[in-house]
Design a protein around this nucleic acid. Sequence first.
DNA 1: ATATATCTTTGACTTAATTCAAAAGAGTTG
DNA 2: CAACTCTTTTGAATTAAGTCAAAGATATAT
Lengths: 234, 234
Amino acid sequence: MNIVETLSSIPLFLGLPENQLVELSRIVVDKRFKRGDIIFSEGDEGIGFYIVISGKIKIYKISPDGKEQILHILGAGEPFGEIALMGEQFYPAHAEAMDKSRIFFFPKVPFASLIKQNPSLALNMIAILFFRLHEFTVMIESLSLKDVPTRLADYLIYLSERNGGVSELKLDIPKTQLANLLGTIPETLSRIFAKMTKQGLIKTDGPNIKILDYHALKELSTAEKRLSDIGELF
Amino acid sequence: MNIVETLSSIPLFLGLPENQLVELSRIVVDKRFKRGDIIFSEGDEGIGFYIVISGKIKIYKISPDGKEQILHILGAGEPFGEIALMGEQFYPAHAEAMDKSRIFFFPKVPFASLIKQNPSLALNMIAILFFRLHEFTVMIESLSLKDVPTRLADYLIYLSERNGGVSELKLDIPKTQLANLLGTIPETLSRIFAKMTKQGLIKTDGPNIKILDYHALKELSTAEKRLSDIGELF
DNA sequence: ATATATCTTTGACTTAATTCAAAAGAGTTG
DNA sequence: CAACTCTTTTGAATTAAGTCAAAGATATAT
């Protein structure tokens, strides 16, 4: 697949006329990273933005004492580092490849002028930003208003529903990373997996998780927590 | 001040030609709310978006057992409920007036077509969304990676710096609401104010807070926490 | 295959923050 | 100003989650 074809399949560029795609193909830089490679760090000057072509990228914050909070895990077609498009900005978080990844880089200046010329590109960008904002809203709610078991239940249900309601899931990230995504630590997550297993909600075998009691998991994810119920569930 | 003039002073509409402003003035609805009025609730159909003209609006989530997390407190010139502009969406959070407020409402359909026709409106919207996204990033980091004293220190420093580094602050929201904004509860916040006061970091008198040791507060806000240090500070 | 590094789990302990309860203070309204 | 409501503070007890430590399991590379 040539560059223009690849670009045309990216949601952000949906509906762009051929000539604009060709324009984009002239400014794009094709990059490759291996697992663990840092793409940018928090505070780096934002020299452009990126789109994942293949692989998986995590965007994360890290505290002075080393605790990591993953903000996003991005897959094929998803942009990151867009903040660089706004004025004199710095990247607000770190970006690291979680797997071998291929990424397109778009330097700020030529892209910024493209977006100004092209209304449909701007509208696509708005749509993506709204989506992001909504995701972050959910994350804030999750961190502030839900306990860790509930956050895990939410995540498992999300994975299940994303695949049309299947009950057999396979985590595509290590549990360590899942802990960092859910705002907890591996030890805590491990204990909760163990508890859910003991309660017959799920069955785990490494990264494979089978949902045994979807209903109870869903309850856990949405129900108001009364002390009596917690005693029952855990 | 007439409507067109008022519209022209709103950041989202910066740079819009006169005729577009007139266009906007035709679709806008001028609304007034008093403290405690609900503007919309989470899950309501998104029929349009709003801009605060005067007063203060909080956007918040609430857990089944009643804990509230404020996502934003919006003042004059700031838009909210923009998510309604995207397809068939529902408001993802609640909006409530914290004071007597005047608000402009823009119905979805006519506004959506305006944004499609007007590139500079789209770019302004992108700028606002980026800003929001950045704010949420900070909030997630705060909730996940910082303890409550640090979050309060951050907030006090933010207030101080927003006013050019003054040391005498006046909270413009009740401490109950501040607790909800910082992701904690009033009791906890109250204890932390008391501790900071005892440590000579601040002095409080109702909503008035004087920063006595800016440096120590800043340290608390940024420093890596080692056990020994915490013992010293609290 | 063997070594190396990374990930996962479990146990014992600590702690930051919440819950529950109650009282004191401040602000509002008839 | 008196009644009411809302906010703020303090104490005592509880708890969810984190820390520290160590062992076991898995995966990756040479």
